[in-house]
Nucleic acid binder design. Structure first.
Lengths: 332, 332
DNA sequence: CAGTCGAATGCATACGCATGCACTGTAGGC
DNA sequence: GCCTACAGTGCATGCGTATGCATTCGACTG
């Protein structure tokens, strides 16, 4: 029972009384192999607990059946993206590798060394050169959730501008007139476009968005937590705040709670994404739903097409968003 | 600028006027290569944008520098474990692959095909044969957070029994006498040991834990959400509930909120893990802190020792837990 | 000056699977 | 009953890197 090194296809071949190439073909369902032979080979393989070496197969075929996902561990959205991406890829027979984007240099090498068939980038900054560099090296890349400034790279995103607009309408329709905003990073497409859509509608409605009620920050809770007091602390305070994502909104909600403010009575909030927490009874956050499942499915299918050899121009799939009014946007 | 196939070490060799083996050695800092030669090779490699093929290297060296982590996407703890594991592994030069444990059969093959140097299992059920099977195939395995019934497999865990005990003490010291519990799955070491520790202290204190105030379920919010009403709905209700993890507790907290009950006035709660949400002002969950950073660090170091060739008996590293009393356990 | 040693490099091969091509045997056609 | 055709297998080689061993050349010893 001692494991005397790896069991290879040669061992199986010997046991089955055929050649190594026949083993290889039999196990890969090559139609040229006779059914009797296939049976012999399968039995021998099972008896020996043979598992083909993915290392050798990768070298030989040039494919790894693995996809890497570049994530930003600071963005609280990553588990949602990764979890669904895992399932989506698994459905297509691919494994998922995780790469956090700290030092982009190393990351680039890591992704270009042939250890994956393609790359999903979920944490791209607008100015990032990573997607374009990978593309330049012939590695299939798809952006998800955000796009880059490079239109040649495929991307699956949500309609962030429309979502921002919808959020603005939600607040206006609830009767708010003194409105502030906690926007996201300006160097991300999500941050920028959600802001643009939101501003557009306010402008069209003739509602002002004074700078003293606006803050920029990361997509983390701390932004909302810190900024709420700043924005509501002046002589006049906004009655409602748009938050660039749910996490920021929940940060603000917690800050409000800590400060003894009631939501939405003292300050109303609208988030973006519709993460699970938003629907907690304790939270009941009004928000804009991003169809993550569809978005990730698009991303995977764009990527698989590239892996399959598609070399056309960059494509951008935009997914519609859905306003989800709960209770935090109301004006009592 | 057209990419005419991959750049290999042969191309670099030609450009530098040396042999392929010299290129290989020069890039791997072999001391036998003259410094002039090393310089030439490095320059040629840079000029050609050469990136060694990890596929070929893996086949040749037998090492992939990758570790797979088996997770349970239904257990809300996974992002925390995965995020920290990623960073911890990255610090040692390893990449992280993700495998969700749906159909264990496939998973086993996927992990045994030589595509990783080792495996971290974070979602093991007590009866699972996966860890032992992998070990039997000579693949380094370490369990983290939970252990299996097989003591031959290395594991890095928290002191769950002591944590359960500490939770019981926390409630007793707050003055609770009518106590219930929402325990976790009995086929996990965490579920079982947290329960055992909790029960032990209650018994020692002569406090009863009536079955009608006890529910078992998964480590998900839905367990807490559903069970709260059941447990508090009778003629007499417990004044406090122990929850097998924070997520269950938060589910219960939300159910309480939805039902108009106040925490801890109407029902007190204690969780387990001290996830980030527990410290939100909105939540202020009293809990038992698991030192995840240390635990994952242990797991990685156990695994790296195995990868390095250690073949001794199975080891189990138990990490002490810390009670974190906030506001939900109090008895007003 | 012959002999020796060692640093520096090249040669050849292994790693394990996939696959183009050559080959064998048998069935079918005439 | 001979030849064609094709299903079924085996042979040989490629994938790109790492590495044991042989080789070269210069320097140093006696």
């Amino acid at each position: 029972m001692a494991s005397e090194g790896r069991v290879t296809s040669f061992d199986v071949a010997r046991a089955a009384g055929v050649s190594q190439s026949t083993v290889s073909r039999a196990l890969r369902n090559d139609p040229n192999i006779g059914s009797r032979t296939v049976k012999k080979v399968l039995e021998a393989a099972a008896a020996l607990h043979y598992v083909p070496s993915s290392r050798a197969r990768a070298l030989s075929t040039g494919a790894t059946n693995r996809v890497a996902m570049v994530i930003d561990l600071d963005n609280p959205l990553w588990p949602l993206l990764v979890g669904r991406m895992h399932d989506e890829l698994a459905g297509h027979g691919y494994e998922l590798g995780l790469v956090a984007s700290h030092g982009e240099r190393d990351v680039e090498t890591q992704l270009a060394d042939g250890s994956v068939d393609g790359v999903i980038v979920s944490a791209s900054r607008l100015a990032s050169t990573l997607p374009d560099t990978l593309r330049g090296r012939g590695i299939p890349v798809v952006l998800v959730q955000r796009h880059s400034s490079d239109p040649d790279v495929d991307a699956a995103v949500a309609d962030d501008a429309e979502g921002g607009a919808a959020a603005a309408r939600m607040l206006l329709e609830a009767g708010h007139e003194r409105i502030g905003a906690l926007f996201g990073p300006a160097d991300t497409s999500t941050g920028r476009e959600r802001e643009a859509g939101f501003r557009r509608v306010l402008t069209e409605a003739g509602v002002d968005l004074p700078d003293r009620w606006v803050r920029y920050g990361g997509f983390e809770m701390s932004h909302g937590f810190r900024s709420l007091a700043e924005v509501t602390g002046g002589r006049t305070a906004p009655t409602a705040l748009f938050c660039a994502n749910d996490t920021i909104a929940i940060g603000a909600l917690n800050a409000a709670h800590a400060a003894g403010l009631r939501v939405p009575r003292d300050v109303a909030l609208v988030g973006f994404d519709d993460i699970e927490t938003a629907s907690w009874p304790l939270v009941e956050l009004s928000t804009i739903r991003v169809p993550f499942d569809e978005m990730l499915r698009s991303a995977v299918s764009l990527l698989l097409e590239r892996i399959g050899g598609f070399t056309g121009l960059g494509r951008r799939v935009v997914h519609p968003v859905v306003p989800v009014p709960r209770s935090t946007h109301l004006r009592p």
